[in-house]
Nucleic acid binder design. Structure first.
Length: 481
RNA sequence: UCCCCCAUAGCUCAGUUGGUUAGAGCGAAUGACUGUUAAUCAUUAGGUCCCUGGUUCGAGCCCAGGUGGGGGAGCCA
C-alpha cells in the first residue's frame, strides 16, 4: 500500500486548521507586489507604538533583517490583546498587505486578526527595546538569536556553510564524514578531550595504570582535533574530498579567536602540489566572501553600520587583490629589515608571532599573505619535506585583523621520508599503520588545508570576538546553554 | 596558563579627599497625545553598590582573598 494515508491527517494538524490563509515569511512580504491580499504572518514583536486610533507593531520572523510594520486599527483589535503583543511576544497576524503610507517602508500589514502565541512579560524579558552590549547578550545566548545583530550573524553563518558545500560540489569534490571520536592525534600535540565510559572516581586499574581494555573502545579515545588524516585516506581514492564538521581542542585558550568546539572545513586533494593548494584556497576564500556579498547584503550592511565601518570595502578589497605568496625565509628578512622593535625576536627557525603576522599583512603588504615553506621543526610530521631538507611545504594564509585563517600543506607522500619524520617527532609508528599504508600502496602527491569556519565568519561579519559568531560558544569554564 | 583592566537599578554608566537619605540616560509600568519609525510628553516603581574578611568613629570609595566578565600574550583554525 502507498504511504499517502500517513500524510493526509497531518495536514489537519496545527494552525492550518484554524485558518485557510497561507503563512508568509516577512522577507517575502517586504518585496511583494501583491497588494490588497489577505495574508497570515507569524513572528516576534520587536517594538510597539500605541496610539488612540492606530497602533504599530514591528514584526520579525528571522527570515531577514528588516521588520514588517503591522498597522493596527484599535477598533479592530481588542486593547487587552494588543497590550499583550509587547516587545518579545510571539504573535500570529492576519491582515491585508498594502502599500505603506509611511516613509520608512514600502509595504505594511493592516491587521484584521491578532493572535498571541506566547507572551513576554516586559518586566522580566531580558531583551529590551534598546541596544545591548555583546557581553550582556553572550550571557543571554538562549535569546540572542532574536536580536538584529545575531540574526544577521547567524544568517551569514548559514550562508557561508551552504556556500562551502556549494563550492566543493560544483567542483566535483566528495563530502566525506570523518569521525568525531578518534584514537589518533592528528597534530601529535595539543590537548584533547577524553571520551570514556570508565567511572572517573573508580577507574579499573592494572598494575597501577588505567586498564583501558575495560573502556568502551578498549583504548584511550578522544574527540577529534582534525579530520585531516581521515580525509587524506579518502582523497587517496576519491580524488578530491572535503570534510566539514565540529572540531575540539581542550587548550586553555582565553582569547577572542579560540573556541574549545569549533567548525572546520578541510579539503584534501590527490595530485595537488603546494601551488595548486594555494590557488584553491585563495579561490575558495574569495568565493565565500563573494557569496555572502551577493546573498546577504542587508545583513552585511547592518553589521558595517553597527560594528565595522568600511566592512564592505574590506571584503571587496580582498576579492580584488591577489594574495601574496611569501617564502618563510623571505618573511623573516622583511621583518628583520623592517626596523621595527618587536616584542619577540625575529630569527630563522622560530615561528612567526602574532605581531609579526600583523606587521606583514597590515603594514607591509596591506592584503592577505600566504606564507610558505616553514622550517620543518616547527611544523607537523605529515608536511612534505622540501629538497633543502630544512623546510616543509606548509602554507599559512594570514588575514588582516584575524591572523591565521587557513593552515595547510602538501602532504608527505614518500613512505621512507614520512616514517623518518614520524620517528624524529617521537610519534608511535604503530598508531599510524593505516596512514602509512596509504604511502606503501599507491601513494600519490596530495595536499590540503583547514579553514576555521568561525575565523572566516569573524572576517565577514566584522565581529571582534569569536564567541559572537557561533550560537552557543564553548570556552574554558563555559558550557552553558 | 601569564599580564592588564573592570564589577553600583533590568541595560549602559556617573558617584568629589572616606562623611548624613546612592544618581543619570535608556528600558519597564501607568496615563496623555500622535500614520508612528529605537515616536514624543508626564508620572511611578525599581539597589544585598559581586562575595568574604580587614582598616576606620564612619567604606560604593582604602586593603587582602575569592568569584564573574573584558582585553592582550602563548597555542592554533
Amino acid at each position: 500500500m502507498a504511504m499517502m494515508p500517513i500524510f493526509a491527517p497531518l495536514k489537519k494538524i496545527g494552525m492550518s486548521i484554524m485558518t485557510p490563509l497561507k503563512r508568509h515569511k516577512v522577507k517575502a512580504l517586504l518585496t511583494s507586489q501583491e497588494f490588497e491580499q489577505s495574508v497570515r504572518v507569524c513572528g516576534w514583536v520587536k517594538t510597539q507604538r500605541t496610539g488612540k486610533k492606530f497602533s504599530f507593531c514591528e514584526l520579525n520572523d528571522g527570515s531577514g533583517l528588516h521588520n514588517l510594520q503591522v498597522v493596527v486599527d484599535n477598533a479592530l483589535i481588542a486593547p487587552e490583546v494588543l497590550k499583550r503583543a509587547a516587545t518579545g511576544a510571539a504573535v500570529c497576524i492576519e491582515g491585508l498587505l498594502v502599500k505603506s503610507q509611511g516613509k520608512e517602508q514600502a509595504v505594511e500589514l493592516q491587521a484584521q486578526k491578532l493572535e498571541i502565541l506566547g507572551e513576554a512579560d516586559g518586566e522580566t524579558y531580558p531583551l529590551q527595546k534598546k541596544a545591548h552590549s555583546l557581553e550582556f547578550l553572550r550571557e543571554q545566548a538562549h535569546l540572542r538569536s532574536r536580536t538584529n545583530t545575531f540574526g544577521a550573524v547567524f544568517r551569514l553563518r548559514n550562508a557561508v556553510s551552504y556556500a562551502i558545500h556549494h563550492y566543493f560540489y560544483q567542483k566535483g569534490f566528495v563530502y566525506v564524514h570523518t569521525p568525531i571520536i578518534t584514537a589518533s592525534d592528528t597534530e601529535g600535540a595539543g590537548e584533547m578531550f577524553a571520551v570514556t565510559t570508565l567511572p572517573l572516581d573508580n577507574c579499573p586499574k592494572l598494575e597501577g595504570q588505567v586498564d583501558w581494555k575495560q573502556d568502551f573502545f578498549e583504548r584511550p579515545a578522544h574527540l577529534t582535533v582534525s579530520g585531516q588524516l581521515n580525509a587524506e585516506l579518502a582523497a587517496l581514492g576519491l580524488g578530491e574530498v572535503y570534510t566539514f564538521g565540529p572540531t575540539f581542542r581542550a587548550e586553555n585558550s582565553n582569547t577572542t579567536r579560540h573556541l574549545a568546539e569549533f567548525w572546520m572545513v578541510e579539503p584534501e586533494m590527490a595530485f595537488y602540489d603546494l601551488a595548486d593548494n594555494m590557488a584553491l584556497a585563495e579561490d575558495f576564500l574569495k568565493y565565500l566572501i563573494r557569496w555572502t556579498l551577493d546573498h546577504n547584503r542587508a545583513d552585511i550592511d547592518f553589521l558595517q553600520e553597527n560594528y565595522e565601518p568600511g566592512l564592505v570595502a574590506k571584503l571587496e578589497g580582498v576579492l580584488a587583490s591577489d594574495f601574496i605568496r611569501l617564502d618563510y625565509t623571505e618573511a623573516v628578512s622583511i621583518l628583520q629589515e623592517s626596523g621595527r622593535q618587536f616584542e619577540y625576536p625575529v630569527q630563522w627557525g622560530s615561528d612567526l608571532q602574532s605581531e609579526h603576522e600583523r606587521y606583514l599583512v597590515e603594514q607591509h603588504f596591506g592584503k592577505p599573505v600566504i606564507v610558505i615553506n616553514y622550517p620543518k621543526d616547527i611544523k607537523a610530521f605529515y608536511m612534505r619535506l622540501n629538497a633543502d631538507e630544512k623546510t616543509v611545504a606548509a602554507m599559512d594564509i594570514l588575514f588582516p585583523g584575524i591572523g591565521e585563517i587557513i593552515g595547510g600543506s602538501q602532504r608527505e607522500e614518500r613512505p621512507d621520508v614520512l616514517l623518518r619524520r614520524l620517528h624524529e617527532m617521537g610519534l608511535p609508528e604503530e598508531n599510524y599503520w593505516w596512514y602509512l599504508d596509504t604511502r606503501r600502496y599507491g601513494s600519490a602527491p596530495h595536499a590540503g588545508f583547514g579553514l576555521g569556519l568561525e575565523r572566516i565568519l569573524m572576517f565577514i561579519t566584522g565581529m571582534g570576538n569569536i564567541r559572537d559568531v557561533i550560537p552557543f560558544p564553548r570556552t574554558p569554564g563555559n558550557a552553558e546553554f
